[in-house]
Nucleic acid binder design. Sequence first.
DNA 1: TGAATTGTTATCGT
DNA 2: AACGATAACAATTC
Length: 285
Amino acid sequence: MPELPEVETIVRMYGPRLAGRTVREFIAHVPAQVLPDVATVRARLSGRRIERVSRRGKFIVFQLAPAGVLLVHLRMSGRFEWVAPGAAAQHRHIRAEWQLDDGARLLFDDARKFGRIRFCDDSAAFGDRIGVEPLDHAFTVDVLARLLRARRRQLKPLLLDQSVVAGLGNIYTDEALWRAQLHPLANSARLSREQIVELHAAIRRVLREGIRRNGTSIDWVYPEGRMQNYLKVYGRTGAACTRCRATIVALRVGQRGTHICPNCQRRSVPGRGRRIAPNRTRSGR
DNA sequence: TGAATTGTTATCGT
DNA sequence: AACGATAACAATTC
C-alpha cells in the first residue's frame, strides 16, 4: 500500500530509466483502470516522449512531450516491474504495459485492480482536489494551522484526506501522531500552536525517514523498504511504547485500523484547567 | 472466513 | 444548507 515515501522511492528508481524514452506502444488489459478510456490514452501516448517522471502526493506523474500528463496511482496493490530489452517477464497480474523505443518494457502489476492510469491535459492534471505537498517549502506551520482550524474534524481522518495534505496514508499518519503525541480523534480546530508545531515537524520527519529507508515493506506488494523496522506504533499492537513502555493498542478511527500509545497520546491534556498550582500548598500558613 | 487495505461517491445526521 | 461522519465499493491475500 504505497504512501508518499514508497511512491517517492519508486519514482527515484524508475524515473531516470524512463526519462527521455519514447513510448512505442501502450497496452492495457483492464479497461476500467484506464481513464478516460483505453483508445484515448493509447492515442495520446504512442510516439510521445517521457520528459520526466515525478510525484504529486501518491500520484506518479509522467510529463509527456510535446504535451500531456499521464498520472499513475498505485492504490492498494499496484507496482511497476522493469523488463530489460529481450528479457522475459513472468508476473501474475500484469494490467498494463509500456513498450519503449529502446525495447525495454515497463509493466504495471496490480493484483486488486484498484490502480488507475489517467491521461490529462497539462492544465487539468490536478484539480483543486489535491492538497498541499507536505515536504514542500509551502507546507509551513501556518499553512498547517489554517488547514486544521478551517474545519472541525477528527485529526487522523483530516490528515488522511488527500485534498488537505497529499501523500499521507494509514501508516505514516499513525507514526506522525505518535511522534507529535496527539490522539487521532483530537478535534482539529482545538490544537494549540505548540501542538501544531509538533505535528508539522512530526509529519515531515516521518516522511523523510520513510524515504531515507526506501519506504515500508509490510506485505508482498512492496518488498524493497526497511522502514517497517523503525515504526513506533503501526503494527505494534501489544508491544511496548519505546517512549514510555506502555502497551500499544489498536482502535478504529474513520473505518481505519489505528495504533496509538494510550499513555503518550491522550484525547485531552491531562489535568488541564485543574492542576492550577501543584506546588503552592504550604503547610502552616 | 473475515479482516485489511485506498480513495471516491453516496447517504445520513446535525 | 453546509459540513462532517459513515458506509459501500472495487479485488485479492493471508
